[in-house]
């Protein structure tokens, strides 16, 4: 019986990693694989602590990078569910200690999804002078049976940097309810980037907010979304600058084809005359000059559009 469980665990792990095209890690690369509410595998390096406990429908994870530590390699997380149906709730609490530097790569994979909910509740604290770059890639099956609801709150300490990239371009997006809120203190920087390709009946709602509360803080919120068929998206980007010399920029680009619908709601607010915030939003079909350039090289309209979208989402 115990032996069978081990075999199952290994098979699951293999399947999970295969779905994201990842197979072996060298021993100096930290990685954690979580299937449903079960930690399948974990390899840590000096200066990194990851504690996980199973809850009924998911896991609670505490991550800490010790003060002053620079992790040489990115830490690879893999969250997922192989079956067609189920819930995976991830509650994560991450602290990057003072002066520490780390990169996290999270792959969330639901290759066979028919009806899956992936709920993530994260709090991230990047302490003074520290940095975290977080990259989250989603791999969904072709059927779009996934509802993903990631809610993240970030505190970026003095002189600290936080950058996040959220990518969902392979497979059907399903229903996405993404919410990010960052508090950016003195001389700190936040950079949020979202790239999503919505198809068929996908519904996407993104709410990204950065509060530039510290003097000299900077924030850049970027969303690049392509929509086809009947997909729809609402992008809310909010940037509020309260302190002198705070700088911010919102960039929202959405390419809309077929019967897809897109809405962008950029909110930029400045409460200090020494702060400066800008925004640009472009929603619509593919830019005609770009399109005609590629047509004049012999690409068909579909090929040209795909290439332009591929660029926007890269």
């Amino acid at each position: 019986m115990a032996e069978q469980a081990i075999v199952d665990k290994e098979a699951l792990l293999e399947e999970l990693l295969a779905s994201i095209n990842q197979h072996k890690f060298t021993p100096d690369v930290a990685h954690v694989e979580i299937h449903g509410n079960q930690v399948l595998n974990k390899n840590l390096v000096d200066g990194l602590m990851v504690e996980a406990e199973s809850i009924e429908d998911g896991v609670k994870v505490h991550i800490r990078v010790k003060s002053g530590v620079t992790l040489k390699n990115p830490v690879n997380f893999c969250f997922g569910l192989i079956p067609e149906n189920g819930v995976q709730r991830i509650i994560i609490d991450t602290v990057i200690g003072e002066g520490a530097h780390a990169k996290f790569i999270a792959n969330c994979t639901f290759p066979n999804a028919v009806n899956i909910q992936h709920l993530m509740n994260a709090t991230i604290t990047v302490e003074k002078g520290a940095s975290l770059s977080y990259f989250e890639r989603h791999v969904h099956g072709p059927n779009g049976g996934v509802t993903i609801v990631p809610v993240t709150k970030v505190l970026v300490g003095e002189d600290a940097r936080f950058s996040t990239e959220f990518e969902l371009i392979k497979g059907a997006a399903g229903v996405v309810e993404l919410e990010y809120a960052a508090e950016v203190t003195k001389n700190a920087t936040v950079d949020m980037m979202t790239r999503i390709f919505g198809r068929e009946g996908d519904r996407i709602h993104i709410k990204e907010a950065a509060h530039l509360s510290g003097e000299g803080s900077t924030g850049v919120l970027t969303s690049h979304i392509a929509l086809k068929n009947r997909a729809s998206a609402t992008i809310e980007n909010e940037l509020i600058a309260d302190a002198p010399y705070a700088r911010g920029h919102v960039d929202c680009k959405e390419i809309v084809q077929d019967d897809a619908r897109a809405r962008a709601i950029p909110v930029v607010q400045v409460n200090n005359h020494l702060a400066h915030v800008t925004h640009e939003a472009a929603i619509g079909s593919v830019d005609s000059k770009q399109l005609e350039t590629l047509l004049s090289r012999g690409l068909t309209e579909d090929e040209a559009t795909d290439l332009i979208i591929q660029g926007l989402l890269s």
């Binding site: 290439l307 660029g311 926007l312 989402l313």
Partner: peptide, 11 residues
């Protein structure tokens, strides 16, 4: 000439 965000020179 047009500018293309994210499109590589090689592509």
């Amino acid at each position: 000439p047009a500018r293309f965000e994210g499109l590589g020179v090689s592509q």
